[in-house]
Design a protein around this nucleic acid. Structure first.
Lengths: 165, 165
DNA sequence: TGACAATATTTCGTTAGCGAACATTACGTC
DNA sequence: GACGTAATGTTCGCTAACGAAATATTGTCA
């Protein structure tokens, strides 16, 4: 890596070094992961405000699209690593904006089906374009080969995190 | 990658594929980053509750240690990618638990120095041991060479995110 | 059938974080 | 040396999320 290539985590690590006997590489990876995600969320949030949408709204619509436009709150909560209560809150605001519709299921009346409205689909499509651009501009800092390599490493980590215990 | 190596993002991508014409690799990387961080935070939070601490409290103490035990709220907020208001809130709770102390600076009376108390330092040390273990157990899924490679790639991304605009 | 467990979702109370407005102190210019 | 401007931190109102408990519906088994 070139000498000028320094990020905020390098500076953090330099200050931290010697203050405690712990693995610097782990610290570096974890901190960079957290910061990157914060940056992604902030940048995306700023971009999405163009269409008057917030990140959490978009993510929910996005999952709903992936499910074909219909899903139960439980499914979405699991997809999004969200608590059931948090899911209800999200759906409330989405329903208030008419991007989503709640329908009690007829077979199992304990369940609720969340349906994407056409307005919701249209807005998702608009936002998706914006999101794709913002995210691509961040990831493009890596060559296609590096992207593939990174994705593979992340997948190993995530798979491990999801299967252990 | 082996056929059995599938994570939740693979399943998400499979459902999503064909529903919109966007870069699947970018989607994969970004989603995995977000999920990994969620997993890290959740797992760490569960472990830290042993010593009655929350992740955000730990992170604040950690930065303070890195700064040698003294820093201004602005410095900490910048370190933690936090808003000034959010920082005030964190410091309030930390001060209430006597892990931290606020002292008005004498030269520049707008400023406040945040000092780590000895109680704060002791608790940080305890928590650090727990945190290191939890994080290491997640990162250990990768070989040392892979860890180094991953860290390099993340650094490239973060450096890019921090310097562009 | 009727009591009871299981499942799905919502309600309630609390919390951390944000943006915007504000008070206070320092600085630069005339 | 007074005045506008910048910097620093806090207060306020609001929002999204959480965990725990409540509610509603369905399945099970005697």
């Amino acid at each position: 890596m070139l000498p000028g290539m320094e990020d905020s985590v390098d500076r953090h690590l330099a200050r931290w070094r010697g203050k405690a006997p712990f693995d610097e590489r782990v610290e570096a990876i974890v901190t960079r992961l957290q910061f990157l995600v914060k940056h992604i969320v902030h940048t995306k949030e700023a971009a999405l405000s163009e269409v008057g949408m917030q990140d959490f709204e978009f993510e929910t619509l996005h999952r709903l699209v992936a499910r074909g436009g219909v899903a139960t709150p439980s499914e979405l909560a699991a997809d999004l690593l969200l608590s059931p209560a948090g899911m209800t809150g999200r759906l409330d605001t989405l329903e208030r904006s008419a991007l989503v519709r709640r329908v009690r299921s007829t077979e199992d009346r304990r369940r609720v089906d969340v349906e994407l409205t056409s307005k919701g689909h249209d807005l998702w499509m608009e936002a998706m374009t914006i999101r794709a651009e913002v995210e691509a501009s961040m990831i493009k800092a890596l060559s296609p080969e590096d992207q593939a390599h990174l994705d593979g490493l992340l997948k190993k980590l995530l798979h491990n995190a999801e299967t252990t215990r």
